[in-house]
């Protein structure tokens, strides 16, 4: 009885390390937890007028094309 208990105890201790777990870390893309940002057209010069902001930016975009200015 004593021997059987001893064997069970030893086997219990000895086999605890035999569990098979994945050794490769699995990466999960994190999600932003910080403060929220205001959108560019909110507040300030455009005061929520998205169309005006887009028009201003589109005009600036086209100003980079000097062929439209010179030729």
């Amino acid at each position: 009885m004593k021997k059987a208990l001893f064997l069970m105890f030893t086997a219990g201790i000895g086999l605890t390390a035999c569990g098979e777990y994945s050794q490769v870390a699995s990466y999960k893309p994190g999600s932003y937890q910080g403060k929220s940002d205001t959108r560019p057209w909110e507040g300030g010069k455009f005061a929520g007028d998205k169309a005006a902001w887009e028009a201003a930016l589109a005009s600036r975009n086209q100003n980079q094309n000097e062929y439209k200015k010179a030729n």
């Binding site: 560019p40 909110e42 300030g44 600036r60």
Partner: peptide, 18 residues
Amino acid sequence: NRISEGKLPACAEMCATK
């Protein structure tokens, strides 16, 4: 924050040769 002013980044707008 130039974008919220309806402007593009300063580097590109300042580029002499575009």
